[in-house]
Structures are given as C-alpha cells and as structure tokens.
Nucleic acid binder design. Structure first.
Lengths: 233, 233
DNA sequence: TAAATAGTGTCTTTAAGACATTATCGC
DNA sequence: GCGATAATGTCTTAAAGACACTATTTA
C-alpha cells in the first residue's frame, strides 16, 4: 500500500491509532487483545486499532476504536509514543500512534471470542511490533503510578483504601503494608475522604475516598530535588 | 495539500519531524528557532523541522534536521509527542512528531540570521502550535531532570559539580545549595568522579565527573513507593 | 596573604519503614 | 463473643535541609 500527495512526494499510506487498554483483573494487570482476521498476521493476537481519519483528532480515533472493542469509554487516555520505522508494517509506510487507555475493571463487558484479556506478564505471541508497545505502556503506567493520579483510570469514582491498595498491587506487582499505603496515598494530596462508609461485608466498614482531581495531575509527595538556597544572597 | 493511498482512502499529506532543541545559555534555558520563509506563517519564528521519508526511522529524520540547522548531532534525542489535530496545519493533514533534542551548550556554532536561540520563558510569537510544543518539551526536561540521566545531553563528557549545578539551575530555574546538590547527584548513582581535576581559574580546582551511563537511565534516588510487606504472609 | 572557589562534616528536621494496637462490622 | 476486616498510633530508621567549616588554587 502506497500513497502520494498532491505535491508528488511519497506520503504515509495512513496513520494507525492503537489504544493499549490495561485493567487489573483478579489481582493481575491485563491488556485487551483482538484476533486479527486479515493478512498480515491473520489469526494472531494484536492490539485493537484502526486508521485515523483527517477529520478526527488522534485521541478521538483511539477513543472510538476503544469503544468499538469494549463498549466503554476510557476513563484515562494518554498518548504513549509513535512507532514509525519503515519496516514495522508489511503493508507499507503506516506509522502507529499508541495510546495508554485505562478503564475501571468494574465496567468491562464480558469476553467475546474476538477479543480477550491477557495478563501482561504472560502474553501470547503478538503480531507487528505490538509486544514492545505493550511493554512501553506497562512501563509508563508503573512509572507514573505513585507520582500522578493516573490510577483515576483504574478505580471507580469512589473507592476504599483497601480497594485502591489491591489495584496498586496488581499494577506494581508488590504487596504494600496497609497503614503505610494509606499514609502515602493520603499525603499525595490526590485523594480525599468523602465522609461516607462502604457497608456490606464482614469487618469494619471502610471509608470511601475519591480523587480530588480527575484530570491528569501530579502527586505532591517526595518530588524533592535538592533544596534551594534560602538565607543567602 | 492532500493525499490518497492505493486503497482509495485519504492519507496524511506527510509527516513532519520537529526537534525541539534546548540548551542552557548564560544561565537560562534556550530553544532553537528558525525563521519561516514560505506560507503559512512566512516570516515568523518556528521550530526547525522537515518531512519524514519512508526510508528513515523517525529519529533519523529528527536527527538529520537538527544537524542541518545546528551543525551538531544531538547528544540526547527522545520522542516527545505527536500532534495530529486536523486544523493544526493550514496546508492540510500533516501530523507532527516532536522530539526533545539536547545538545551541549559548548558545541553550539555561532548564530545565523536564519536561526536563533531564544529563552524559553520569553518566546517571540511562534507559528503553528509550536508554543505548546515548546512548553511540552520544557516540562518533559524539567520533569526528568532529577530522576534520569537526561542531563547527559546538556553537559560535556566530563564536568565539575559546580558546572553541573549551574546547568541544573538554568533548567529548573532555582538555586541549589552546593553541598546538598553534590550529595544528591552523587547518591543518584548516575555520575562518578574520574579522579582528575579541572585546573585553570582561581580557587580550589574542582573534581571532574562523568556519567556512568550515557544511554537513557533512571536515577536511583528517592523513587520510593510505600514499602512492601516483609515479615508477614 | 587575601580573594575566590571547591569540598567536607554535622546537627536538625522530615519522611518512610515496621509494626502493635484499637475500632467496627456480620454471624 | 468471635472472626474478619479497617483504621490509628508510634517507635525506629533513613534521607533531606541548612549550615559552619576546611581545603586549594590564583593574583
């Protein structure tokens, strides 16, 4: 597949938008895959995606493709990187813009035969350069987890501390000490208690929290380069 | 300008690569601008850049454009983001991939009439959506300064602590306490002393340091999410 | 030997790690 | 009341902040 622009120069045959949809499922971080029907890589698992159109902003394309595949909109959508190596797509020169897309695990619709959630630490073989894209997405999520409110995409609007802890544990792959987890998340300034309690199960009811800001924001904690001078000229 | 691919679908008229070249000059962070000669925005300052070709990897295009404008290769080149809004370029559908490019201030060649260094906190009016791209680049640099070896791109191969401090100060816009600056940079694990001394000026000669790793790497310091459980099941 | 610059040591303050303890639910 | 779960308090340890001080050069 080739393209030429009106000035006679070679143009990309198209631009692909690829949402990397991550969600914690049963304690592990999973990614949404679809089975590819056409060549190349027919029959293998790949990330969902589709061609951008000139009338859409790139995030809109990513959002649309995501909704087509999952039935839900992403709570959090962030551009990851653009992959444009000449040989990455056998069909021709087709750069791909990857997006990190996070959705609350609670709103996922049931699996279908054409799409599947797979744990990111045990992926099946993927077509194109998609294994690398998944790795980049997971790295971005893990890297920002404690330094931003990126988890807003993975938790319901109101949540409890133990619930948040389990999500953080699924993403980072470690087990946190509950009281320290609580202290750190509170000190981050990203969440605040709503005053209500989660009732239902056994045990003391947990307090409900919510994110102060649902737009992308940075944590206040431990972002401390060396101190500035104070009492000197 | 329009393009159509061999399947009959609209294709981007091209993809632009735009290096955002940053360097500390006389204590302030500057960005390299060029004067645009053709419409649109003829006569106004813009970021350097050019069309990608199907035979190049995107970073190669950015690197090539950078070399054409400055005569030097970037020490550090990192993809920033892709800007693809339909209306961002009056010429047509031309997504732009921006790159953060850092070069050692010492290797810059002299200014020319067609290109100029401007301080990032007092920019002239820029064409296209380039003001936003500069803001994004500066934010990326500032954000990674203390958490990665990104400064490898802004310092000569061997440098002194005061030299590094002045560069860090130019980027972050704050003044560091020298002994704490030294302690933090050493504890980061990113640099190590070479054993040699910088001679010349007045005052005690400074020890020379170099980066342990010149490839992108993360700092060891203070990247501490809450502790894991240890003595429990 | 004075001015200038670089480097070391250390006391104080703040944040994180590691629990023990207390609180509140359903059964 | 008992098991289960959530929340609080606190002692210990480690890191950062704020300096005072020492060291080594050139003029």
């Amino acid at each position: 597949m080739t393209a030429v622009n009106s000035s006679g120069f070679p143009a990309p045959a198209g631009i692909y938008a690829v949402p990397v949809v991550l969600a914690p499922l049963s304690g592990r971080l999973h990614v949404l895959l679809v089975r590819r029907v056409e060549a190349p890589f027919a029959g293998t698992w790949v990330l969902p995606g589709g061609f951008m159109s000139p009338s859409e902003r790139p995030e809109e394309t990513a959002q649309r493709k995501l909704t087509e595949k999952t039935g839900v909109g992403a709570v959090y959508l962030e551009q990851l990187e653009t992959y444009g190596d000449p040989e990455r797509d056998p069909r021709g020169w087709i750069p791909t813009v990857a997006y990190l897309a996070l959705i609350d695990a609670a709103v996922l619709r049931a699996d279908e035969s054409s799409s599947r959630w797979e744990p990111v630490d045990a992926l099946p073989p993927l077509g194109f350069d998609h294994p690398r894209i998944v790795v980049d997405a997971v790295e971005r999520l893990r890297g920002k987890l404690w330094w931003s409110n990126i988890a807003v995409g993975l938790l319901p609007e109101r949540f409890t501390m133990p619930q948040a802890r389990r999500v953080f544990e699924a993403i980072s792959g470690v087990t946190y000490e509950p009281s320290n987890f609580r202290r750190e998340l509170e000190q981050s300034g990203l969440v605040h208690a709503t005053g209500t309690l989660a009732k239902g199960g056994p045990g003391r009811p947990a307090a409900m929290y919510e994110f102060v800001e649902r737009q992308p924001a940075w944590s206040l904690r431990r972002s401390r380069p060396p101190a500035m001078l104070r009492h000197r000229s």
